[in-house]
Amino acid sequence: MSAEIIIDIILSLSVLLLACLTLSARQVFTAIVLYVSLGLLVTIIWVRLNAWDVAIAEAAIGAGLTGALLLVAWRRLSNEAAAKFESSNDVY
C-alpha cells in the first residue's frame, strides 16, 4: 500500500511540474512537445485510477492527435518555424 502511494505521489508531482514547464516554455515548439509528454504521463494516471478505456483514448487522442494538430498549425502560426526552416533548405 505505501509503495503504491509513493508511486502516486511521484506521478502527481511530475504532472504538476510538467504542466508548469509546458506553460513557461520559452518556445512554442517546446511547449507543444511538453504537452504531448504531459498527455502520456496523464495516461499512466488514468491506469492508476482503473480507467483503462479513458487511458486508451487519452493516449490516442489527447497525446497523439492533439499534438499532431498543434504541430501542424504551429508551422504557420509562429515565425519560429519560418526561422527554423530558413536556415536549412532541406525540409525533411
Binding site: L23, V28, I32, L70, W74, L77, S78
Partner: peptide, 8 residues
C-alpha cells in the same frame, strides 16, 4: 500566443 492558450 494562440497555441499556448489552447494548450492551457
Amino acid at each position: 500566443h494562440v497555441i499556448r492558450k489552447l494548450i492551457a
